[in-house]
C-alpha cells in the first residue's frame, strides 16, 4: 500500500511539472544557453531569474516525479 502512495506522489509531481514546462518552456540554460542575459541588478534580470527558476522547478518536478513513480512501481 505504501508503494501506491509513492506512485501517486510521483504522478502528481509529473503532472504539475509537465504543466509548468508547458507554461514556461524548458530552462534557457538547457534550451538556449547563448541567450543574452539582462544586466545584473536590473528588474529585467530579476524577471529573467524568476522565470528561469520556474522553468527549472517544472523540469525537476517532472524528473523527480518520474523517479518516484518508477521507484514505487518497481518496489
Amino acid at each position: 500500500m505504501d508503494e501506491l502512495w509513492i506512485v501517486c506522489l510521483g504522478l502528481g509531481m509529473i503532472w504539475q511539472g509537465l504543466l509548468i514546462t508547458w507554461v514556461s518552456g524548458l530552462p534557457l540554460a538547457i534550451r538556449a544557453p547563448d541567450t543574452p542575459k539582462p544586466q545584473a541588478g536590473t528588474p529585467e534580470a530579476f524577471g529573467f531569474f524568476w522565470i528561469e527558476q520556474y522553468r527549472f522547478i517544472g523540469l525537476i518536478l517532472a524528473l523527480a516525479g518520474f523517479v518516484l513513480a518508477m521507484t514505487g512501481w518497481l518496489i
Partner: peptide, 16 residues
C-alpha cells in the same frame, strides 16, 4: 482535481 490544476496553469500560461 487534475483539471483544476490544468486550468490554473492555463491562467499562468496566458499571462506569461
Amino acid at each position: 482535481g487534475l483539471l483544476a490544476v490544468l486550468l490554473a496553469n492555463f491562467v499562468l500560461y496566458a499571462r506569461l
